[in-house]
Design a protein around this nucleic acid. Structure first.
Length: 562
RNA sequence: UACCCCAUGGUGUAAUGGUAGCACAAGUGGUUUUGGUCCACUUAGUUAAGGUUCGAGUCCUUAUGGGGUAACCA
């Protein structure tokens, strides 16, 4: 392994883009500088796909000793808001990235962009066009047929200058005129056929308010924004590939000094969910989910509320990889990443979600024993906690079975199990109600087995979780599953994506928590032993504790049963 | 077929003309006071056909399949 490879392995970052940058640096392009940017439009919340773009741009900056700008690409006042702009910043920060002083807004460049437009007009490379949007489209041609020149294509520089200034000054109605780059109406790439670069839109902008009634269009604005900020590598997703000639055209035909390079990669796609901001917005507006931060949403804020950690998300972004191949990542990789992180860091607690009453027949009423539980077997420094034990307990209903098969290592009449950190108990009697449903178990405990082992060293295979009824706190637990039942929801236009929703994406149950969990102010995601990872939801009140299930534990027993 | 892009196990991703590797998933076994974790092992891959070469996943040609692009959105 050579030094370069070694270096890349240590950085955990090596893909076709870093190879391009390696070459650029070897050739001393940009004097070896690397400046990237993450340029979201503040028209929605960030999702896991954005998280990968963020991870990519910031990691590249870090790897090459450069920097990464955060830029709000806010050139469309009709869809953007301060709420979104703020949420984006919060999410990027939470993911662990620091843009230092490099926070920018495209809207701060409006005057500069206007000046570059004048430059293009002055050099005969842009003109004001009076075609209506319909006519504009018609003149543009189709994918297979060339376009025709606009009748306004050959206006004089002076006339264009005057008209453009009048556009800016509000002389014309919205859509009455637009400014177009003069390139080639017969170009095989339809984007090069005199694209519009400024439109008239009397919309209130959340930052520039009503100062402007003309707004620059992405294809014109973006390369110039990049150049203004001295971006060296402008990384974007695949659908902009055909825009690259246009991107370069604006860099080459204006007086900007920098020569940013656009590089496209395949956006991250996850099975069982969708990344369309428009459709996610629809789910929010229709109330299908509880908001952008609903724990079932693939948004950064949704994952945060679900109990995911930034480490898990960034690891996932890295493991998913960067290529130009448009694939779909299995949700199980994301789940693996969160379990991997949480297994190392989450404190363990006992909580019973599906309670079945257990009475210890040979335990005195009122007697309480305080036992010691290990907080995290993966981390000795996490310490221990006290767990009260008494005559009346709850165990999980799934941990009892009548006529259990031999491989069932839990409780059944006449069988013995270990209560985690407590005692061995044997089920002596099963009490049922008039419907024949099991409502209580009468068990006897072995006083010699305190702490979960007995002096005779007998083997008790099963260990189950429990809580003491009188010490337990009741809580609500929200069990989340994938939002959609299909692998690729929303990809078939003939299918309404609502029909692909998973009707069981949310199940609400009651749970009984051991006191150490109920009394602590948990802010981190914890493990309910043998069940999964859970975090306290923001809907919790002093009276009502609410937990969200982040992810279940792997369950090889459940698999075996199938 | 107007132009552009892409194609490696089920999924994602390495291999930069020289032994097709890794991760997830799936499965088998072991350890275990979480049927978790951990450990070991197994299954499974270069879209096709030509060409260049001592040697091709990699380079060339063609075919096939998939995707993107015709907003005064980004």
């Amino acid at each position: 392994m050579n030094d370069l490879e070694n270096n890349n392995v240590e950085n955990g970052l090596n893909n076709f883009i870093t190879e391009i940058i390696d070459n650029d640096i070897a050739n001393n392009k940009n004097n070896g500088a690397v400046i990237t940017r993450f340029p979201p439009e503040p028209n929605g919340y960030l999702h896991i796909g954005h998280a990968q773009a963020i991870w990519l741009n910031f990691s590249i900056a870090k790897k090459f000793g450069g920097k990464c700008h955060l830029r709000m690409d806010d050139t469309n006042p009709e869809k953007e808001s301060i709420e979104y702009a703020n949420a984006i910043q919060e999410d990027v920060k939470w993911l662990g990235w620091d843009w230092n002083d490099d926070l920018y807004f495209a809207s701060d460049y409006y005057q500069q962009l206007y000046n570059y437009a004048i430059e293009l007009i002055s050099s005969g490379k842009a003109y004001v066009c009076d075609l209506s949007p319909d006519e504009f489209r018609e003149y543009k041609g189709t994918l297979k047929e060339p376009g025709r020149p606009s009748p306004f294509r050959n206006r004089s520089v002076e006339e264009n200058l005057t008209l453009f200034e009048e556009m800016k000054n509000g002389k014309y109605a919205d859509g009455e005129k637009c400014l177009r780059a003069k390139i080639d109406m017969e170009h095989p790439n339809i984007l090069m056929r005199d694209p519009a670069i400024y439109r008239i839109r009397r919309a209130h902008h959340y930052r520039t308010l009503d100062k402007w009634c003309i707004y620059p269009i992405y294809d014109f604005a973006h390369p110039l924004e990049d150049a203004i900020e001295n971006i060296t590598h402008s990384i974007c997703t695949l659908e902009f590939e055909v825009h690259r000639p246009l991107y370069n055209w604006f860099v080459e035909n204006t007086s900007v000094k920098a020569t940013p390079q656009q590089i496209e990669f395949s956006r991250l796609d996850l099975s069982g969910t969708m990344m369309s901001k428009r459709k996610l917005l629809q789910l929010v507006e229709e109330g299908v989910v509880a908001g952008w931060d609903d724990p079932r949403m693939p948004t950064v804020s949704g994952l945060r509320r679900r109990g995911y950690t930034p480490e898990a998300i960034n690891n996932f972004c890295e493991k998913a990889g960067i290529t130009k191949f448009k694939g779909i990542i299995d949700l199980s990789l994301l789940e693996h990443c969160v379990r991997e992180d949480l297994n190392k860091h989450a404190s363990r607690y006992l909580a019973v979600m599906n309670p079945l009453k257990v009475t210890i027949s040979n335990w005195e009423e009122g007697r309480v024993d305080i036992l010691e539980g290990v907080n995290n077997p993966e981390d000795e420094t996490a310490g221990t906690r006290e767990i009260p034990f008494s005559k009346h307990l709850y165990i999980d209903r799934n941990d009892f079975m009548e006529n259990a098969p031999k491989k069932f290592f839990r409780l059944s009449e006449g069988r013995e199990v270990r209560l985690r950190y407590a005692y061995y108990i044997t089920c002596d009697e099963v009490i049922k109600d008039e419907n024949g449903e099991v409502i209580e178990l009468i068990c006897s405990y072995d006083p010699e087995s305190r702490g979960g082992k007995s002096p005779d060293g007998r083997r008790v295979k099963g260990t189950i979780h429990w809580v003491s009824v009188e010490h337990a706190a009741k809580a609500e637990v929200r069990l989340y599953d994938r939002l959609f039942a299909t692998e690729r929801p929303g990809t078939d236009d003939a299918v309404d994506f609502h029909s692909e929703l998973n009707s069981e994406s949310l199940t609400v149950v009651d749970a009984y928590l051991e006191p150490a969990l109920a009394n602590s102010d948990v802010t981190k995601t914890v493990q309910f032993e043998r069940q999964g990872y859970f975090c306290k939801d923001k809907d919790s009140t002093a009276e009502k504790i609410i937990f969200n299930r982040t992810a279940s534990l792997r369950d090889s027993w459940a698999k075996k049963k199938k």
